[in-house]
Design a protein around this nucleic acid. Structure first.
Lengths: 338, 338
DNA sequence: TGTTACCATGATAACGATACCATGTCTCGT
DNA sequence: ACGAGACATGGTATCGTTATCATGGTAACA
């Protein structure tokens, strides 16, 4: 395949001039540009970005490491990231960690080897080691969706605590007192924050925290299914379920169907994460909707700023509010039993 | 940052030996391996894959070019691709073309510049130029989801014609005679095939093809919404809708809701593409479900075979069947009016 | 004992681009 | 008329690996 020297020879200029032309770096007269472009077209020249990256130490490639692209929440984030990044001339590599720290580590190693210019990370677990690893290499990083303890880094996330607080308050205001929370893995900050918000609302209402209403599992449909079954297995049953992510919500709903419990008549359900309009038949679920696209957009913008040195020297923490969307699944005010 | 020579020096070997060690290529005694690994760890060496790719002409990077990762159908394909590719040691770059030929062209140029080892392509429009462009460079390519006219290439897709035929037959068997098809862009093979299947079923049933029941738009919710409104605007209304992809289906359902038409009582609805269980509350839609994960898996497997020279010299066309899943939205047998 | 085959390592050059420094022309303001 | 600064181009070295060829040791086998 033709290289830059072939092009240079054919155009009657030096290779470096060709380089300047095709990258719009440095000066280049219109005549030269025309000759170079003609030569490029004639030879079908495609610049080798491995070589240029090796020399220039920039790859114009970023990475988005997340837990599961199958989740529309992350898909929407990914779209926000890709749209902006691609406009700015960057390519994005996506990696699914499935909440596995070892998978995350493996991916990060590959990304370092590929010399990506920057990384957006939704850390599996607490993310401590991973963020440290990347920072040691001086690669710009922005953490997405989750907090990282004790680590200086930029973060873009949603206010999970407040969202959970308001969802719980909504249930309380509707008369519920036995509210089970079906939560994600305990090591993850969003789980912790949502639990905190839930507890704060209960505390404020003067209701004792009861471990029997607090379930921990994974952010998956299967786990939601199981937790719902467990929550409703005992003699004392909750009157409402709070599922802390969309997959858990759908798993729980499936379990309720199996048990022939009607929502919201027999049991109320609220959850975190809304589905995009393009995937919903009849909007039914009361949710705390995270601004996913916006989160992706903000995160990539911070990263791009860092890449061109425009970022402030201080770390930012962008915390966007969740929007409480009230629909049918939370039900109407109910008679107080007891 | 430390390079391979620093490692070599510290381990007391030649750089090439370090290379062999970390890539498991060629021979390497246990002692040497141990010394090299120690040196790698001490220096925190991370091999530069730009340099190695430049020299070896392999990047261990593949690309999946699709129209919209936001669509769960493609997301599931993407997961299938990524799972297998990553097991085989490849990284995957995703690109969203939004059905735009120019976006596709831009992305392909970037991918060629990055010297990806292979490409999976869901072609926007007919894909002729794009596939030719890639083949000219001798980069292995597998086309996904759609047929490419007159072009020798491997293809993995679903049998759209047959799926559409069966969905339409189902509606016919339920007594419907006025069936509107809400279709995607006419340049795309899946649209064409689904239209063909629809027509074949009608023909077989002795029903005249009627242009007034055939709508073309985009594979989006908005378009589905519009087409449904148009289809139901006239005096003669269809008794059933066939939406040719999931987004169109949801757009149509939204339109029907606005018009206060009940599904299936007032109008039957069937569509292409099922949603993953993790996203569905109450399975309701009658659909032709494409085996998305399997499609991704098959496509990447063919690509990997080509990469290691295991592929046969003939082009394959893998056509997987769609599964007709009958739920409520298609309704029960109806009285024949007229 | 010689031939073959595998094991283990190294020297050198090359992959294809750009960083860096240098050179020369032209315009313009004073 | 002259220095300053923008414009336009080029020479050389270098980025960090691995392909290729080469060397020598050791085990196996007839």
């Amino acid at each position: 395949m033709a290289d830059i020297r072939d092009v240079a020879k054919l155009a009657g200029v030096a290779p470096i001039t060709v380089s300047r032309c095709i990258n719009n770096s440095g000066y280049c007269s219109p005549q030269t540009r025309a000759r170079v472009e003609a030569a490029v077209a004639e030879l079908g020249f495609v610049p080798n970005r491995l070589a240029s990256g090796l020399r220039s130490k920039r790859t114009n490639t970023l990475a988005l490491v997340l837990t599961d692209i199958t989740n529309p929440f992350f898909t929407t984030i990914a779209r926000g990231v890709e749209d902006i990044a691609s406009e700015a001339g960057y390519t994005v590599i996506f990696c699914n960690t499935d909440e596995s720290v070892s998978k995350e580590k493996k991916y990060l190693q590959v990304l370092l080897e590929k010399r990506v210019d920057g990384i957006l990370l939704v850390p599996a677990s607490n993310g401590l080691d991973s963020v440290a690893l990347i920072k040691k290499r001086d690669i710009p990083i922005v953490v997405l969706d989750r907090r990282v303890p004790d680590l200086q880094t930029d973060v873009v996330r949603c206010d999970s605590e407040e969202g959970a607080y308001e969802l719980t308050r909504l249930l309380l205001s509707l008369g519920h007192r036995e509210i089970a929370i079906l939560n994600g893995p305990s090591g993850v900050s969003t789980s912790g924050d949502r639990l905190d918000g839930y507890r704060r609302a209960l505390n404020e209402a003067g209701i004792n925290i009861n471990a029997k209403w607090e379930y921990h599992g994974a952010f998956t449909q299967e786990s939601g299914f199981e937790m719902a079954h467990k929550a409703l297995a005992g003699v004392y049953k909750p009157t409402a379920l709070f599922a802390t992510n969309n997959f858990i919500t759908f798993g729980a709903l499936k379990a309720l169907q199996e048990m022939e419990l009607r929502v919201p008549e027999d049991i109320a359900v609220v959850g975190f994460d809304d589905l995009p309009a393009s995937l919903v038949t009849y909007p039914f679920l009361t949710v705390a909707a995270q601004p996913a696209y916006e989160m992706g957009r903000r995160a990539i913008e911070i990263l791009l700023d860092k890449l061109c040195g425009k970022a402030s020297d201080q770390y930012q923490e962008v915390v966007l509010p969740a929007e409480i969307v009230i629909r049918q699944s939370s039900g109407r005010v109910r008679k107080l039993v007891q």
